[in-house]
């Protein structure tokens, strides 16, 4: 073996030791990072989810969208949030000809009214169709008869629906079916909850449950 090749060999065999040092250094950097990251994550989380919120649904008080509407209901009467002054209004979107599985939001509001006892009469569901083509006024009238007579179905025309989608930041998409009338609609399934002064306060994900709604609606009626 020549001298130069022996040196080369030494350099090569020192490789694994270099790697060991490198690994130790990496571990140290990672440790320091974790020490700093953990409290930061905790602080950020505790700030964006204040544990003091009395609501079970998502508090979106002050959100700059989903302000109001002016639309005809299933009886042809033009409605806006003013009509629900002194009450808690739950606004959500859908269509009556659901193809495979039907949402149970209206049933959930019926249930929440029962849970609220005498206050229940002040909780109102406002169902807005995203399918005015098939959800005509007579169809909506028949449909709403299945729920509480105090509930309201609104029918925007296609132009109003576009405006509404912008105002409420809705995702609405028509999926063609096998025939021209068998299409389905993708749409935002969440609900918007307004306080007795008509201000947007809460956001309820689909399936949040009647109990959470009844609890929060009571708080809003009591001036929360």
């Amino acid at each position: 073996m020549s001298k130069s090749s022996a040196r080369k060999l030494r350099r090569m065999s020192s490789g694994p030791q270099d790697a060991k040092v490198e690994r130790r250094r990496l571990a140290l950097v990672f440790g320091i990072f974790m020490l700093l990251a953990a409290p930061t994550v905790f602080l950020v989380q505790s700030r964006s989810y204040p544990t003091a919120s009395p609501f079970k649904l998502i508090d979106i008080t002050g959100a700059g969208y989903a302000g109001d509407f002016l639309l005809p209901d299933h009886n042809g009467v033009t409605r806006s949030l003013k009509d629900f002054n002194g009450e808690v209004a739950v606004v959500f979107f859908g269509f009556t000809q659901c193809p495979d599985v039907c949402p149970t939001t209206l049933t959930e509001v019926v249930q929440a009214r029962k849970l609220m006892g005498s206050d229940g009469a002040k909780l109102k569901a406002i169902f807005v169709t995203v399918d005015p083509e098939r959800d005509t006024f007579p169809v909506l009238k028949t449909y709403m008869a299945n729920f509480d007579p105090a509930f309201v179905a609104l029918r925007p025309d296609p132009g109003q629906l576009q405006q509404l989608a912008k105002e409420f930041k809705l995702h609405i998409r028509k999926n063609p079916g096998q025939s021209p009338t068998s299409y389905t609609m993708d749409h935002t399934a969440a609900s918007f909850v307004y306080d007795p002064r008509g201000r947007l306060r809460l956001y309820a994900r689909y399936g949040a449950g009647a109990e959470a709604l009844a609890h929060d609606a009571k708080l809003l009626l009591n001036g929360a």
């Binding site: 599985v101 039907c102 949402p103 149970t104 049933t107 959930e108 019926v110 249930q111 029962k114 689909y206 399936g207 449950g209 009647a210 109990e211």
Partner: peptide, 16 residues
């Protein structure tokens, strides 16, 4: 009539 099935059996929609 109370739609308890939807909530106690956690049915996300109908039919389930």
């Amino acid at each position: 009539a109370d739609a308890a099935a939807i909530f106690t059996l956690k049915a996300g929609g109908v039919p389930t």
